[in-house]
Simulated assay, not measured.
Amino acid sequence: MSLDGAQEWAPPGVDTSRSSVARVHDALLGGMENFAVDRSVARRLKDAVPEVVDLVWCNRAFIGRVVDFLVREAGIRQIIDLGAGLPTVENTHEVAQFAHPLCRVVYVDLDPMVEPHARAIMKGNVYADALTADARDVAAVLGHPTLTRLIDLSQPTAILAIGLLHLFSDDEDPHGLMRRYMAALPSGSYLAASNFMASPSPKAKALEVLLQATMGTGWFREREAIAAYFDGLVLEEPGVVHFPEWRPDERVPGPLAPWEELLLGGVARKP
């Protein structure tokens, strides 16, 4: 990509005049696969909540621990990563295949830039692939030939919906969406999900207002609503908690910082 103000090339189907969640996320991580409009949103987010970059890295660390648990402890060998975003570091397939080399991973994202960039990183990896689809269309995702080539939906599979569900309003029924995905999978499958948590904290309010103003999305929810994503499933310990509290590599040192309390997530098994 070029510097702000210069002519920017984009793949077919990509509108460089509108920001994208995946590309803003990439900009916050210091990546190169974004445009001036995405960097502008990233700057506004950092100005309003300077800790937002720490928050994004905290999200990446949570995904890594979750995937490692799913493969090493839960025995999962198939993962569907919904709303995966642009490839960065310690991607889902890298963590999963480090734990078990035959683990199969399919990335799903609506942004048309994700698929080609993911495939470039995964070149030669026969157990990982990416597809462009709207995660809200369960039939289109689960029936996509890229997914069915790698994922046997009759076998236990993990759905990752981390950093995704707060993009959907209540009218879009994110709870029903998760139920439909899990209904399509057999016993022994897993759901890993998260959401921004509603809070009176000025940081939370500032981030929610700015996300909705700049990107038209970002729905913060109460703890009970986040826990409801896992209704009918068996939660793994420690339950639905703030990211740093979910199976940390080291003991969490003292009280969480305000920005660490903005995200809540968990992992659960289909009985």
Score class of each variant (00 low, 15 high):
residue 200 P to A: 12
residue 202 P to S: 06
residue 202 P to D: 11
residue 202 P to N: 10
residue 202 P to R: 11
residue 203 K to F: 01
residue 205 K to D: 04
residue 205 K to T: 14
residue 206 A to C: 05
residue 207 L to G: 03
residue 207 L to Y: 10
residue 208 E to S: 14
residue 209 V to T: 13
residue 209 V to L: 13
residue 211 L to R: 09
residue 213 A to N: 08
residue 217 T to K: 07
residue 218 G to E: 03
residue 220 F to K: 06
residue 221 R to V: 07
residue 222 E to W: 05
residue 223 R to E: 15
residue 224 E to D: 15
residue 224 E to A: 15
residue 225 A to E: 14
residue 226 I to D: 05
residue 227 A to F: 09
residue 228 A to R: 11
residue 229 Y to R: 02
residue 230 F to M: 04
residue 232 G to R: 12
residue 232 G to K: 08
residue 233 L to K: 03
residue 235 L to I: 00
residue 238 P to G: 06
residue 238 P to K: 06
residue 239 G to P: 10
residue 243 F to W: 09
residue 244 P to H: 10
residue 244 P to S: 10
residue 245 E to A: 13
residue 245 E to P: 04
residue 246 W to Q: 06
residue 246 W to T: 00
residue 247 R to M: 04
residue 248 P to S: 10
residue 249 D to H: 12
residue 250 E to I: 06
residue 251 R to Y: 05
residue 251 R to L: 14
residue 253 P to I: 03
residue 253 P to K: 11
residue 254 G to L: 09
residue 255 P to N: 11
residue 256 L to A: 10
residue 259 W to K: 00
residue 260 E to I: 05
residue 260 E to P: 05
residue 263 L to H: 02
residue 263 L to C: 13
residue 264 L to E: 11
residue 266 G to K: 08
residue 267 V to P: 02
residue 268 A to F: 08
residue 268 A to S: 04
residue 268 A to N: 02
residue 271 P to I: 08
residue 271 P to Q: 03
residue 271 P to S: 07
